[in-house]
Amino acid sequence: MRAISCFLAASLLWAASAREEGIAAFEAGRYSVALAKLKEAAKDSHDARAHLFLALTQAAMGDCRTALPNLPATDRLAGLAAAKCYAAIGDEGKAFTTLEELRKRFPNDADVLYLRARLHMKAFNDATLAMFQGAPASYRVHELSAEVLEVQNRYSEAAAEYRKAIELNPAAPDLHYRLGRAILLESHNPEALERAAAEFRAELKLSPEDAACEFQLGQIAQVAGKQAEAKPHFERAVALSPGFVQALIALAKLEPAEKAIPLLKKAVELQPANEGAHYALLTAYRNAGDMQKAAAEKAILDKLQKPAGSEFSEFLKKLGEKPAKQ
């Protein structure tokens, strides 16, 4: 009996030693050694750690189908390995589902966020390639090319691609809007303003309730110094999309303080961290002589004041998506 106990104890010790050596080998990237040691350790069906690292080793060696049943998304490393494995075997749906689980548990983890970005990028590339191969003559090819060029600050090339897209499908929504934006991103000279305005007007013919186009036309009128022309555009933008914060702010700035304040209160309610909205509200309160409320807005602004957004956030802003209707 004592001999059996001694044998069992020795076996456990040996298994534990194999597990730790296996984990060390895994962490050193010596996967073949890790695989052998961890298989040995995993003979103990109760050694969860050995099973986990065995699965991680199998995943690292590309044996995803064997590894996946033992890679729970509740564990950070296992979840990351599982997401990579699902992507590797072409099950993108499960890859994204796993990553979404991970994101909830580890919201600011750089590895999780990186993998998420990378898989989305891969999905984007795959879809783009598929479109270029499967529908090369579609206006969508030019539309997508234009959007990519826009992000790269190559506005005149982007505009040319939008024009090609419009030529192929003059009735497609959004193309004139995006073309107008590309023109504005390149220049604000009077001639460019007029060309951009023509595109927004063309978009409105296709989509008469496009609040973003109304807003852009208002902005163009303002840049051209035509305040009176700007106002009805902002009014229409707000009427079409009551939660359009930028339009609310723009309209408020053209109104006397008593009319501006409710618009701006709504803007800060919709976007409490919008510095521009708070600043406009501060100014409106100030102009109304309500210095107490102006001071309160200043205090909020002071809190919101932070270093200006990074170049990357600027880059993302340039994607210029239209605001969601609210």
Partner: peptide, 14 residues
């Protein structure tokens, strides 16, 4: 500067 309206542009931007 901020209360007076000379710290930023008309949009409150730096």
């Amino acid at each position: 500067g901020m209360e007076a309206g000379v710290a930023f542009n008309f949009d409150g931007a730096l």
